[in-house]
Simulated assay, not measured.
Amino acid sequence: MVIYSVQQPLGWQRLVCCKELIHVLDSPAVRTNKKSEVIQLGDKLTDKTRHFKGTADLQWFFDDLAIYQALAMLFPFSLREEIMGAYVAGKVTDEMLAEAAQIPVEYVRTVMSDGWKLLRESILLSD
């Protein structure tokens, strides 16, 4: 079951749904099995002041990792490469790309950043 807010814009809904589906592949070590674990994880993930605290926070780490894996799926790398020239020239804005790809604008900036190619290659699931 994937839970998401219909109050959020479509881009956020898509990102959350894709991210949650990625968790199907999580190892048993980071899964939540009890209601109390789900509540605790939800509290941890919604805390805006949270910081990664090492191996005790593997669930936090894998949740953030799933966001970037979802981005790699929702914003095709071939599209990024195709529009990069127009983006650098200022002919295409972050807002235009967010609307076209239906992802949150702050994540467009991540995908269009110089480091995205290396990050994308290091986080994608291999077969």
Rank of each mutant, 00 (worst) to 15 (best):
R31H: 14
Y4S: 02
V2W: 09
R80N: 12
W116Q: 05
L15F: 01
I39R: 10
I39Q: 13
I22F: 08
Y4C: 03
L58I: 01
R109L: 11
F52L: 11
S113Q: 12
N33C: 07
V2P: 01
D64I: 06
F77S: 03
Q7N: 09
V105M: 07
S36V: 09
E37F: 08
Q59T: 02
H23R: 06
G90E: 09
V2N: 03
H51G: 03
K34Q: 12
L118S: 08
A100T: 09
R14G: 00
V38I: 11
L21S: 00
K117L: 11
V24L: 14
L10T: 06
I103Y: 01
V92T: 05
D47A: 08
F77P: 03
N33P: 00
L125A: 05
K34C: 02
R109P: 04
A98G: 05
L45K: 06
Q13L: 10
F61G: 02
L41I: 00
K48Y: 14
L125F: 13
V105D: 12
Y4L: 02
C17S: 09
K48P: 07
H51Y: 14
A56P: 01
L118M: 12
R14Q: 11
S5T: 03
A66W: 13
L10C: 01
A72T: 07
H23K: 08
V24Y: 15
E95L: 10
A98Y: 14
L25C: 10
K48N: 03
M96G: 11
L125Q: 07
L65M: 09
R109N: 12
M73I: 12
V111A: 13
L74K: 04
L79K: 09
E95W: 13
E37L: 03
E121N: 05
Q69I: 11
Q7M: 02
M1G: 09
P76E: 14
A101H: 08
M84V: 03
I123Y: 00
A89H: 13
D114E: 14
E37H: 04
C17Y: 03
W116H: 07
E106Y: 03
S113A: 06
M96Q: 15
N33M: 07
G54N: 04
G115C: 12
V105K: 07
R120E: 15
L65H: 04
L97H: 10
E95G: 08
A101I: 07
